[in-house]
Design a protein around this nucleic acid. Structure first.
Lengths: 190, 190
DNA sequence: CTTTACCTATCGATTAGTAGATTGTTGGAG
DNA sequence: CTCCAACAATCTACTAATCGATAGGTAAAG
């Protein structure tokens, strides 16, 4: 198990990335929030790149667990998709946080290479997660066997990430509307 | 008409935002690219906030013009949608640039307030632009009159922004696939 | 007596931004 | 036509703050 301080640092860093982006916060911000000096943060995460990588790794494993949990639950596919969407809408309502995936992606070419690589894995697993949910709809007969779940899951993931991120600046209910129309298209589609 | 240097500054700043985000570049970077000292840049844009606002304003008017041009052209709706998508895929292929809309949005809570406000307008106009294209498909009979173009245009815009941004980190052809499946769903939908 | 987890103190680089001098151009007034 | 004032656009030089990161010390735990 991770040390308590390390988890607190990751918690704070994650919240900061989700609201301000990776270049939008500093070790000083973390220092203030967690209550240890910036030099001590370097003990846990020698470079900011290390912090970024650890951040994405932890987020990814949490995401996989949550989505797998949703995919295997005994509820209609429509509800599974809504639950997944709720993972995002919760953090959006709570201080307007977007997904760290979209936050990192927007600054892609300013990221340290190890962070870029880790981000690629997060996106892949993100899409796979949605696909696993959609596939569960095939086994249950809610989705036709010939449905292109690979393409659909890409659309879902990109649509979720996009609407989640844009929703903070727009007055429109982008996330809710996107989920609604995607659900409709998915469940009635060919 | 704007001064030549001012346009060069905006050009460079735009490219930098699209690849590294608003917090990912400095006046020093602009100085190197344009060839005037950082102090001289402050003459044209007193603060970085001013630069950000000007950037979005210029981008927005250009976007509106381009999309209106596409919407009124005498080509099938499917081709209109592909042309719009090409606006994005071009800059993606050229040095992996995302839309400044998504770039700014990811860092939302670290942006100066005037930039946040201007960003909101960009997103609104972005969605309206897509809706205008879809509406032109109603007049031509390619889209049923009862099609919910408001919701569809939101989905299109969020999907485009999301896939465009995520595509830089992923090996998947997210943008192309997203456009393809969205075109299919739009043109065959209820 | 080594390791863990913190500290103080400091580093050089970079950040956005300012002050004030110096150019080039332009448009009158004599 | 010439001089001069005004202006726009750039420069040099600087500031205070902040950035990520390092060095070296300390106290406690095993």
């Amino acid at each position: 198990m991770q040390s308590e301080i390390k988890n607190q640092l990751l918690d704070s860093a994650q919240a900061l990335v989700q609201s301000k982006g990776f270049n939008g916060f500093s070790y000083q911000d973390l220092s203030r929030e967690v209550g240890i000096k910036t030099a001590s943060i370097h003990y846990h995460f020698p470079t900011k790149s290390d912090l970024g990588v650890a951040l994405i790794q932890r987020y990814r494993t949490q995401y996989i667990d949550e989505v797998n949990d949703i995919a295997t639950r005994s509820i209609p596919l429509r509800e599974k998709l809504q639950e997944m969407a709720q993972m995002y809408s919760k953090s959006l309502q709570n201080e307007g946080k977007t997904c760290i995936c979209a936050a990192f992606s927007g600054e892609f070419h300013s990221l340290p290479n190890p962070v870029q690589d880790e981000l690629a894995r997060l996106i892949d697993d993100g899409i796979c997660g949605v696909e696993r949910i959609l596939e569960s709809g095939k086994s249950s007969g809610e989705l036709p066997l010939q449905a292109d779940t690979a393409a659909l899951s890409q659309l879902w993931y990109c649509g979720l990430q996009g609407s989640l991120t844009l929703a903070r600046a727009s007055k429109k209910s982008l996330l809710r509307d996107t989920v609604e129309i995607l659900s409709g298209l998915t469940l009635e589609a060919v």
